[in-house]
Design a binder for these strands. Structure first.
Lengths: 337, 337
DNA sequence: TTGAAAGCGCTAACAC
DNA sequence: GTGTTAGCGCTTTCAA
């Protein structure tokens, strides 16, 4: 903020009008004569005046700023969401703070403190918390993405995790697999929990007893998928199929399988989550549960901005929008029949 | 910005002190007795008061906000830079707007307008413009990343593109290759231009005449690398080696090569830029020019924030920081000797 | 159609 | 140590 910055006052003086008039021109308000308007615009031009929207915010109580909070900004799922919110925000004239929490509750809270004092109007949040009351004290509009919190009273955009996992597992079962492993992230989050449930339900519905040794829960971060896959394949009776329930887990599973000199779709069947470079590169392509990642972001951002625009007539009922998923059968599941 | 928000005045009343005292406590200023401080803190707690840092900004001329502007937020190079600036900003108490320009000058300018009115203090910029005067009117601290503009008077963080390309090309030549193609992005940007120069210089220094038909310039976006690779390999005399000068170009080159049923390191040699999932997955691993992407971001953000902190004693000489690169010889270049 | 003036929530002299 | 007060740059009544 340069000290040399021109103010509305300078413009007023330069154009020989009052500050009120300049403000009217700036905000395209009515009741300014064409002549005055032109005069003011010329002055603005000549002084290279840039209005200080912060000062305006103090009065209008509108900052046109939102925040997008995600665990990580290098995971392609989250970047897709960020891209989407950025696009929607751009179209609506909003500016977006982006913040990675590293899935740390402390980092998230610290950021909340700071960004709330900046008066963001709302937040698109892939949160670290799972407690229904966790975000109760945040007196801002919030839309949760991917990880929903039941009974929190918050709006959210999610996918049909249960069905995605159910269909993926059923697909493997129908191909003759019964020894099906699952690589999961932390099941404290709704997304993982529901995928886990879908997997279990599919097994149950087909009369297959779930084998606890085949169920691996890692952190979604980094390379846990690699170790888990190695461990699975080194069992006395390894699974014949693996369901890797995230983009990252799938990537690491593929790497582990390759490093063991096993062939996907032959020695071991694999179903992943989300399309990704690797899963689409190898042949046969990996069968994956496809979800509309970008659309999740656009819906979330749109819901948020709609709420900001219609603050007065808010629907008090929390809305959870569930987008459907699709099983892309690409040939990485061997037919055992 | 809720209308119900407490203000410093409410706190003052509640604690039975003046607003000045509350302000002092808030900013950890001296000369407040322990007793008063405690009283104020208690009031803040009880009222759940969140200070409006925008109001403070108006007086202090400090907003603690910066912007990170990149062409795209789904490319892993840029996310690495964003992650880095976010990390540095976080450590320094700054908040970061993130904005993708899609390499559109118009979008970039529109964003500048908006974000400048929000009084960001500085900008980390992978810009769309190449004109030395392009950013002259932006009265903010700017640090360029990756794409430097000579004679712009701006600071920047880049890598030694020339040397990286020179060494990569020399490596191929030393393995006996003379028919070496290059996949480049838009050479209007310094990074591509320098890589192109490095490639040409290496050929020249080894007495190899450059073949214009082997030099392909695409847009860095999307899939141009795929088409370019196909076209190269369909030539009457295709190259024996390809230098793909970016992470994306390399990824698409790999896909194209696979789709033509050619074997990397055997039928066609390949050198890429930046490590990436795919280049590291396939065997032999792709030889790449490795650059410190995250460090580019941390250096840029650190330079920026240092400048913001020491505004008064600014070094008037523009600083260009060049980080070194490293050729990771991974075996995708066949030895023709 | 325009201007004067109050005030958004806060900081920073300056006084006591 | 603490309080009073002017004012940051802007919008918004209210008058003219």
């Amino acid at each position: 903020m340069s000290h040399l910055n021109k103010t509305i006052k300078d413009v007023a003086k330069h154009a020989n009008v009052s500050v009120a008039t300049v403000s009217r021109v700036l905000n395209n308000l009515d009741r300014v004569s064409d002549k005055t308007r032109k005069k003011v615009k010329k002055a603005i031009e000549e002084l290279q005046f840039v209005p200080n929207s912060l000062a305006a915010s103090m009065i209008t109580k509108q900052t046109k700023m939102i925040a997008t909070i995600v665990p990580n900004i290098q995971n392609s799922f989250y970047t897709s969401v960020i891209q989407a919110t950025a696009d929607v925000a751009k179209a609506e004239g909003y500016f977006t703070f982006v913040f990675p929490t590293n899935d740390s509750v402390e980092e998230e809270e610290a950021f909340f403190q700071g960004v709330l004092s900046k008066n963001v109007e709302g937040i698109v949040l892939v949160g670290t918390q799972t407690n229904p009351d966790a975000y109760k004290t945040i007196d801002k509009q919030i839309v949760l993405v991917d990880r929903y919190i039941e009974n929190s009273g918050l709006d959210g955009v999610v996918i049909d995790n249960f069905r995605g996992a159910y269909e993926a597992t059923t697909h493997m079962i129908e191909k003759g697999h019964t020894d099906i492993a699952i690589l999961s992230g932390p099941t404290i989050y709704s997304n993982w929990k529901e995928r886990y449930w879908g997997y279990q339900q599919a097994l149950k519905d087909h009369g297959i007893k779930a084998n606890p040794a085949y169920m691996k829960e890692g952190n979604w971060q980094e390379d846990s998928g690699y170790e888990m896959t190695l461990n699975l394949m080194r069992m006395d009776q390894p699974p014949t199929a693996i369901f890797a329930t995230s983009y990252i887990l799938c990537t690491y599973a593929i790497n582990a399988i390759r490093d063991m000199n096993l062939v996907i779709g032959e020695d071991i069947s694999l179903v992943g989550f989300d399309e990704n470079d690797l899963a689409q590169f190898i042949r046969p392509k990996v069968t994956v549960v496809r979800r509309p990642t970008y659309e999740m972001g656009t819906h979330a951002a749109t819901m948020l901005i709609n709420k900001l625009k219609h603050k007065n007539k808010l629907d008090p009922h929390p809305k959870k929008l569930t987008l459907s998923v699709e099983l892309l059968k690409n040939g990485s599941v061997k037919d055992l029949k």
